[in-house]
Amino acid sequence: MMINKREKNSIVIFDIEGEIRRSDISDVTLHQLVKEQLEVGRKQILLNFDKVDFIDSFGVGEILASYISTHNLGGKLKLARISKKLFLIFQITMLTKVLDIHDEEASALQSFFKD
């Protein structure tokens, strides 16, 4: 997994590439990166899943933990550009009940200012 950070209108965007899974040997996790942003006061975070092609329950847990950490500090964490098969996992695990998921990055960014 690779994660690149960029910003638009004070919103932190993480472009995630690859697979979010237990057996990945990355040094840093998605949740750790989100917490680093929260610690410096960046509480509007968008996760771009355009280039993510596999997640397992560990990945689901990372996303959920990122949402919880952000929500508990009064911030907003949203997701965009999730493939049909990954959305299926979110539906089964009922993450769609708690996460704000957008088809496109533009609509996700706009939604930060509408809530």
Binding site: S57, V60, G61, E62, L64, Y67, I68, I92, T93
Partner: peptide
């Protein structure tokens, strides 16, 4: 799961 802030426990159900 959200209230408890748990990361795991979804794999078997999935």
């Amino acid at each position: 799961v959200v209230a408890a802030g748990r990361k795991g426990g979804l794999g078997i159900y999935l």
